[in-house]
Design a protein around this nucleic acid. Structure first.
Lengths: 180, 180
DNA sequence: ATTTAATTTCTGTAATAACAGAAACAAAGG
DNA sequence: CCTTTGTTTCTGTTATTACAGAAATTAAAT
């Protein structure tokens, strides 16, 4: 596939972004490419378009599929796999945050809970330290349960809430007087 | 400083987390250590506690200071720098998201805007592709402006909003009927 | 069954990032 | 000013990760 200069810039930057957030550059680039592409692409096409090794494409695609961001399609009379990416931006965001939560935040929560329990019987640990551990744990729990609520809402509602912004804050402080 | 088993586990895990989100392991560990510590620590103490090279400590502390997560303190009759970390969990979260936004999201937004402009005159690019680029841009803009609003609110209000969760969603859909 | 096409796994190399230790630098105290 | 103490910068090494290319595997078609 021929990349226009703009697409090239876009894809390169997206790869850069990936590395800054702990995502493999090639994986991010392929994701950007498939997102921008308007037709399914074969692994070989991706390889030629991005100039990366075939194996690299294969592994990256597997990774993207495990995230649920890319799916395989087959075309009549063609044995090759054709790959398509999720096309809806909000859906992509939802999938990434959800997967990231599952892979990183949830395990962290588990460890923090273990630590909280162990801290109770750990005689060497100071009370103030224990309290701080508890605060972090509670923070994450509030944040994640809030996230769980919001992710159920349709994007249009979330957009509304975002646009209400600080007005919502005023509302909440009002209610807050007699605690929610 | 002597690390209790629990603290050790905590700090090691925090370092692990860091690497998964693009943060240097030592930086993350030192941050965890200083957060848990109830007294300011010198670079040498940190070095001995975590078993890392002095230079590594120095650079990591510089990094943490540039993030605004760690500050220097001086004690009477002691020439050495003593380091303390922000102790408030919400404040830490706020600082990290804000800094991360400034360093990664804002530059990305700039690039995406450039791409959107270039895409208009890029004859090779398909209309559908251009639209998708626009959608990503708009998504990020809504998200970030929403974030800008919420970050002004006191944590207590944000907690209330988070706990209201899906109830808030129902509210927003109601308002939505005649658009906000 | 055998050939051909497609994909994955494996292995070695290259690039990157993390790090230790040494050297250089800065600053305070005598 | 010169010594001591503390901090930073520099240099080389190590470890990790990313990657290319080859080999192996799988599966469809003749």
């Amino acid at each position: 596939m021929k990349l226009s200069p703009t697409m090239q810039k876009y894809i390169v930057h997206w790869g850069e972004m990936g590395t800054r957030w702990g995502v493999n550059r090639t994986v991010a680039q392929i994701h950007a490419l498939l997102f921008l592409a308007n037709n399914p692409m074969t692994a070989d096409e991706i390889m030629e378009t991005l100039n990366v090794a075939r194996s690299n494409v294969s592994n990256s695609l597997k990774e993207l599929q495990s995230w649920g961001l890319v799916k395989v399609q087959h075309e009549l009379g063609d044995r090759r796999d054709h790959f398509v990416a999720l096309q809806d931006v909000w859906e992509i965001f939802r999938v990434i945050t959800e997967e990231r939560k599952k892979r990183e935040l949830d395990p962290t929560l588990t460890v923090l809970r273990e630590c909280a329990i162990e801290a109770e019987t750990d005689t060497e640990i100071e009370a103030a330290t224990r309290e701080k551990m508890d605060q972090v744990l509670e923070f994450l729990e509030v944040l994640l349960s809030g996230y769980d609520d919001f992710k159920k809402l349709p994007p249009s509602t979330v957009i509304k809430l975002l646009k209400m912004g600080s007005k919502l804050g005023q509302l909440a402080s009002l209610f807050g007087k007699e605690d929610v």
